[in-house]
Nucleic acid binder design. Structure first.
Lengths: 164, 164
DNA sequence: ATTGGTGCAAAACTTTTGCAATTCC
DNA sequence: GGAATTGCAAAAGTTTTGCACCAAT
């Protein structure tokens, strides 16, 4: 393995986001990784960091690009394998948003959903409380526990409907 | 092009399904295809027939397999190209159900949705009325016209939750 | 020391595209 | 006849896997 250069983040991404201390989430993830018997490698820490500092969903290629800014020798297969581990631990969610690539998102915080415009590709977030009643109905009538962190709703945004 | 053998369907699939006459849907599709300026080729008719007689969602590979029972020389690219045309005409819907392959479904009938168990892969259908309120909320609060024919909800079915 | 992870390369996989030949209108 | 469509082959794209080497516990 070639020399480890160290972690670097984009300006504005390395500071606290106002919703909590910056390290707490990664510390928690590190603890979960270690406690579940997985090894803590620099590559995994970089992937976790990239996900943690990304706003919203990112593709494996985007995570790789971010990680390679610190350490250019990481392979995309490592990103996928790390995603697989993080998925098992419910630290990230994997969603198909219709682009041909899977989208990954750090699973901390309130669950939310995506409204994806099939006209222009714009993505809005939809608060999960809007789905509470639906989730209850599904649970009651189908005995199906909906994983509400994984919903992408396709449709048309206001401008692509011609509203303005 | 090699000789056309003719259409054949599985037993029990060729008769009326009790919800209407068997040919009406395909006739309508044929009319829509012709009226929109597309040519009527045996391959397209076979793809339409395979979709029409399938119960629920099918992959391109499954459609190809069904079509090739009648006419073994059809290529998968023709299936995809036909799907593309049928999508444009809103005769089929395309959904990613998390299997790695896109799922296609004949668009006739009441729109419905899928509850996909990530434990065992079982798929239940969810009536679209369960989503009406959500659709209205999204329309009102986000001015987003949700395309309710395209929703797949992941989660755990009763048995994979351990409820019996 | 031993288990597990990484990087590299190649494979696997679905979907798309270029093109000559053919078919439908 | 002429434009659209097909089949074949190859390409393109993301994701997975085999394997020898290396690193974390």
């Amino acid at each position: 393995m070639r020399p480890y250069i160290g972690l670097r983040h984009e300006p504005g991404q390395s500071a606290s986001n106002g919703k909590g201390t910056d390290m707490s989430c990664e510390d928690e993830a590190v603890a979960i990784l270690r406690d579940s018997g997985h090894k803590l490698t620099p590559q995994r820490l970089m992937v976790v960091s990239a996900l943690r500092h990304a706003e919203g969903h990112v593709t494996a290629a985007q995570v790789l690009e971010q990680v390679q800014r610190s350490y250019p020798y990481v392979d995309v297969s490592t990103v996928y394998r790390t995603m697989s581990v993080l998925k098992e631990l419910h630290l990230v969610t994997e969603t198909d948003m219709g682009s041909g690539e899977l989208a990954y998102e750090w699973a901390a915080g309130e669950p939310h959903h995506h409204l994806i415009c099939r006209g222009c590709g714009a993505v809005q977030q939809l608060d999960h409380v809007a789905l509470d009643r639906l989730t209850e109905t599904i649970e009651r009538e189908h005995r199906f526990r909906a994983d509400i962190a994984h919903i992408a709703i396709f449709g048309l945004c206001a401008s692509c409907q011609g509203l303005q």
